[in-house]
């Protein structure tokens, strides 16, 4: 059931079959290039060349687009207003009443929006096409402590139950006469009778869950094995190394560009 896998959208594409680390490295490299390479349009190029084709191949393009637009629009609006209109100094390209639209602010907003789009769409692409338990396993094999992996995965699975619990408490309190609509004071007073039962009830569970973990030898030190098996290929390993080289190259380029004028003087 997709809910337990987080954002994962189950499909049978070549992208889905890739090793989680390949997808992670790829997305991080795209992110790095989009953010570090100078120029207003760099993020958009990375988007078109790097993100869009992969999203299409993974058949998650509509999901990515929809969610990216939803998340990015508030930022875009804020950026264009705050930076476009309130840029200190700079060349005015349009007067709008008491406010003036500055060219530098506009370009900043365009680049800023692009960077956010890359971050969001890259992350979504990764999440839609990768199972979180496989990603955690891949990271564990690279050294991520199994305790962290346990925490992340079990949190993902208990959150829907918690929201259900919260709704149950909300209904129960409402049926006992709790007012949740009305003035600010009324709504604030509703907060404690809703939050408290949720918190106190959960704390009791912590003890039992800890006991269950101990029973299953979770506290044992020593190497752990895994029922789940990830499939990796030499090509992917090579590709990942290539991506890392590209990333290092981009960083080196940026440092060079930053240092060069200082040494020219």
């Amino acid at each position: 059931m997709s809910a337990t896998y987080g954002l994962y959208v189950s499909k049978q594409t070549a992208i889905h079959r890739l090793h989680p680390l390949t997808k992670l490295t790829y997305v991080l490299t795209c992110l790095l290039i989009a953010w570090i390479v100078p120029g207003v349009w760099a993020p958009y190029i990375v988007l078109l060349v790097g993100i869009v084709p992969v999203a299409l191949m993974a058949q998650v393009f509509p999901n990515v687009v929809q969610n990216t637009i939803k998340t990015t629009i508030p930022f875009a609006i804020s950026l264009f207003i705050v930076q476009g209109l309130f840029w200190t100094g700079g060349t005015i390209i349009q007067q709008l009443g008491p406010f003036s639209l500055k060219e530098e602010g506009l370009l900043f907003a365009i680049r800023g929006t692009g960077r956010i789009i890359i971050a969001v769409s890259g992350f979504l692409l990764l999440s839609y096409a990768t199972r979180s338990d496989e990603l955690m396993l891949a990271l564990s094999q690279k050294g991520l402590p199994s305790r962290i992996s346990y925490v992340i995965l079990s949190t993902l699975q208990i959150i829907p139950r918690f929201q259900h619990k919260a709704n149950t408490i909300l209904d129960a309190q409402r049926s006992r006469g709790l007012e949740t609509e009305g003035s600010f004071l009324i709504r604030t007073r509703a907060l404690l009778p809703l939050v408290f039962p949720l918190l106190l009830g959960s704390i009791v569970d912590i003890e039992e869950r800890a006991i269950a973990l101990e029973v299953r030898a979770f506290g044992r030190s020593g190497p752990k094995t895994s029922l789940l098996v990830l499939h990796d290929t030499n090509r992917q390993r090579l590709f990942r190394r290539l991506l890392i080289l590209v990333s290092l190259g981009v960083i080196a380029l940026r440092i060079y560009l930053w240092l060069a004028p200082r040494f020219a003087a």
């Binding site: 305790r147 346990y150 925490v151 079990s154 949190t155 208990i158 959150i159 139950r161 918690f162 929201q163 619990k165 919260a166 949720l198 918190l199 959960s202 704390i203 569970d205 912590i206 003890e207 869950r209 800890a210 973990l213 979770f218």
Partner: peptide, 13 residues
């Protein structure tokens, strides 16, 4: 370790 997932779920809820 058993507490952290529940704490995070509480944060969200």
């Amino acid at each position: 370790l058993a507490m952290i997932p529940i704490a995070i779920a509480i944060n969200i809820a």
